[in-house]
Amino acid sequence: MLGYIAKRGVHGLVSIVGASMLIFAISRLSGDPVLLMLPPEAPQSLVDETRRHMGLDQPLWMQYLIFAGKALTGDFGNSYRWQMPALDLVLDRLPATIQLAVAALLFSMALAIPFGVLSAVHRGTWIDNFGKGFAMLGQAMPNFWVGLLLILVFAIHLEWLPPFGHGTPAHLVMPAIALGWYPVAAQTRIIRSSMLDVLDSDYIRMGRAVGAPDWVLIWKYAFRNAAIPLVTMLGVYFAAMLGGAFVVEVIFAWPGLGRTVVEAVFSRDFPVVQAGVLFTSILFVLSNLLVDLSYGVIDPRIRRDG
């Protein structure tokens, strides 16, 4: 198992270095940050001097080596826009985004699992249709619209939840729903089709023949096997939520990393973009590693083979 983890760790490291090189090059293709930083009347001499001061007059490969060397020591440079260490900015915002992504993922699974299982068990009935319909609704509505509707209903009309902000569980409810509803349809479909396969297998038929109760067969035996494809996708969903949180963070004034990085992209704030993307890559790699390791917990055969 340790060998497996080490191997995956090396793969992850290569992915992270690759991501850092890619984002470094792409961010620089987007244009010159100095013109955005300085006031319009700034003379060209000041533009040139600022560019030199920031090291942007160096060749790209040299800039990357300087960045990589400093990044290894935890120095991602100062944000051009915020004029504070980019790493501080990213690490301050990261927990809020992780919190939101985890909550959204839990919300989506809390809906997708019962909908998927019940749809498979009651295939072709109104339960099946309702489950699929409710899940599809989330996919059909963009999350900024869902967010605004939630604010309108639960904050303004019913006054149950705060319309914006961060800090209490109540603040988390609406952003998690807005972000988490979208993948419910896909997750429901995965579980439904996987459950249909499993429910049709010999050991389930055998279980039924020997009189095992339905709920035991469904939730203890069938679902455990049917969950493997969903677990495989969880790492991808988690990463998608980290990346897709931007819109929801803006709607709910959620102080997360997505908002910070997207604003940094628009203001050509390279240090923040680089630090933000690098940490998101690390999270992505870690979440996928966790997913891989969890297979063994769910299915002992994988543990034995590994």
Partner: peptide, 18 residues
């Protein structure tokens, strides 16, 4: 001073008394 960049959320914050 709260930072609420989205117009409609800022309006909602005002309407709800936040």
């Amino acid at each position: 001073i709260k930072i609420i960049p989205e117009d409609l959320t800022r309006v909602a914050a005002f309407k709800t008394g936040a």
